[in-house]
């Protein structure tokens, strides 16, 4: 079938099998490999993208369902060479380790902040509760989203000074233990 959709603001027309999952369409047909696949059951959330501005799990959306709609992926977060504050926040607060769940987490975080610019910790945890991270234990992801909420304009470049990052963390632990 012929699919006509919009991905990251660009019109896309492709011949696809009707059964093609959105995650496979994005990855295999469009080469947008930032969106990952982690389960078959909508449990892990590593495949989260936006469909008309709402986070969806692209492993359980048919590509055909996006016809006439708008899809956004992690590749669209950086604009004109400037990272989205959520991207910066994840770097500043060590909100990722292996990086596999990160694109989905970023898309959910951005969607959350767009409708609630100052979410509580409980709200952030609820928002990402459909997604699994095996590396971080989530606290640093919560911090990352809070950082983005506290820095709506982001920070220049990829990083800010490490001292700022340390100062932003709620309870930085001393390096040494003798003191």
């Amino acid at each position: 079938m012929r699919l006509s959709t919009t991905v990251n603001g660009e019109p896309v027309i492709r011949e696809i099998e009707p059964r093609t999952l959105l995650v496979h369409f994005l990855r295999d047909d469009l080469g947008l490999t930032g969106t990952h696949w982690g389960c078959d059951t909508s449990n892990c959330g590593t495949c989260v993208v936006w469909l008309d501005g709402e986070p969806v799990k692209s492993c359980t959306v048919l590509a055909a369902m996006t016809g006439g709609h708008e899809v956004r992926t992690v590749e669209s977060l950086e604009k004109d060479g400037v990272l989205d504050p959520v991207q910066q926040g994840f770097m500043e607060c060590h909100g990722l380790q292996c990086g596999f769940c990160t694109p989905g987490m970023l898309m959910t975080a951005r969607a959350l902040l767009d409708r609630d610019p100052d979410p509580s910790e409980a709200t952030i945890r609820e928002a990402i509760s459909g997604q699994i991270c095996r590396c971080t234990g989530y606290t640093s992801i919560v911090h990352s989203v809070q950082w983005a909420a506290d820095h709506p304009a982001g920070a220049p470049g990829d990083t800010v000074a490490a001292e700022d990052a340390a100062a932003d963390e709620p309870a930085p632990q001393p390096v040494g233990g003798a003191s």
Binding site: G31, L32, T33, G34, V74, E78, F90, M91, T102, P172
Partner: peptide, 24 residues
């Protein structure tokens, strides 16, 4: 030594990590 932000993160937050399934 010290608290330093990770060098690998700029590619991961952009969705530019290169995992096995990304190899074509």
């Amino acid at each position: 030594y010290g608290r330093m932000l990770r060098k690998e993160d700029p590619r991961f937050v952009r969705g530019q990590g290169k995992y096995v399934d990304d190899v074509v």
